[in-house]
Amino acid sequence: MTDTQQGLREALKVVAVALKSGEAPFALAGSYGLWARGGPEPEHDVDFMVAEEDASRAQGLLADAGLHVVQPPEDWLFKVYVDDAMVDVIYRARSRPIDRSRFDDVDQIEVESVLMPVLSATELMADRLNAMEEHACDFGRVLPVARAVREQVDWALVAEESKENPFATAFLFLLRQLGVVAAP
């Protein structure tokens, strides 16, 4: 494990514990959500999701916990820093507000000794594929993740949720060709 990964794991725990102290639903998302479900460990940042209606309260909880909270120019997230590790708290995805219902089907998973809600592998993979675009479509990074969590994913639902994204469609074709997932 690298120093960066150690810092991200610590940030993940600190932010999760602070968010748990509030009443608003949240969930571990992104690459670390996939890591919690058996995927490879990332080295960039940690992502949590909150409902847009709870974003201000979550921001306040984290600031009250003594964490460094920053509102970047983007209007869909805020950032939290734990030492040098960055945590994104996302409240809008694909230009749509995140609703509390997004957290209805989370699983409580122990991550680094902290029990926390984690989005389903299906939602995480759909989010990952829908984030692919012309400047961010590295299939080589996503393939090991898809292989690691494949049994946990409803691939038909992922295909349906990402059918408007040609990069996602191409990636799903690749997964079928490689035998990672079955053809529909």
Score class of each variant (00 low, 15 high):
Ala93Lys: 06
Tyr91Trp: 15
Cys137Glu: 04
Lys163His: 11
Val114Asn: 02
Asp84Met: 07
Pro117Leu: 10
Gly140Met: 03
Leu77Arg: 15
Arg102Ile: 03
Ala131Trp: 01
Ala159Phe: 01
Arg176Asn: 04
Asp99Gln: 14
Arg96Glu: 15
Arg96Ser: 14
Gln177Ala: 14
Glu123Tyr: 02
Gln108Pro: 00
Pro166Asp: 13
Arg176Asp: 10
Val114Arg: 02
Lys79Phe: 10
Asp127Met: 13
Ser120Glu: 10
Val158Arg: 04
Ala121Asp: 03
Val153Gln: 07
Ser95Gly: 14
Met132Thr: 00
Met86Ala: 13
Arg141Trp: 08
Val80Gly: 02
Pro117Phe: 06
Ala131Met: 11
Ser162Leu: 05
Leu175Tyr: 03
Phe78Arg: 10
Val106Cys: 15
Leu119Glu: 14
Glu112Arg: 04
Phe139His: 02
Lys163Ala: 12
Asp84Cys: 01
Val87Ser: 04
Ser162Phe: 02
Tyr81Lys: 14
Gln152Leu: 15
Phe78Tyr: 15
Glu161Asn: 10
Thr122Tyr: 01
Trp155Phe: 09
Val149Leu: 04
Asn130Arg: 08
Asp88Gly: 06
Ala159Asp: 12
Val87Asp: 08
Ala159Asn: 05
Ala168Ser: 13
Phe139Leu: 03
Val82Tyr: 15
Ala136Asn: 08
Glu134Gly: 02
Tyr91Pro: 05
Leu174Trp: 03
Phe173Pro: 01
Tyr81Ser: 00
Val82Gln: 07
Glu151Trp: 01
Met116Asn: 04
Ser120Lys: 05
Leu143Gln: 03
Glu112Thr: 07
Glu110Gly: 00
Val149Arg: 00
Val89Thr: 07
Val114Met: 04
Asp104Gln: 14
Ala126Lys: 03
Thr169Cys: 09
Pro166Asn: 10
Val111Gln: 06
Val153Tyr: 01
Phe173Thr: 13
Arg102Ala: 15
Met132Glu: 05
Pro166Gln: 11
Val89Cys: 07
Ala159Gly: 11
Ile98Gln: 08
Asp107Tyr: 06
Asn165Val: 08
Arg102Glu: 15
Phe103Tyr: 04
Gly140Ile: 00
Ser113Cys: 01
Phe173Asp: 15
Ala93Thr: 07
Ala85Asn: 08
Val87Leu: 11
Arg150Gly: 00
Cys137Thr: 02
Glu134Leu: 03
Val87Trp: 10
Thr122Ser: 12
Phe103Val: 09
Glu123Pro: 01
Arg102Leu: 15
Phe78Pro: 05
Ile109Thr: 13
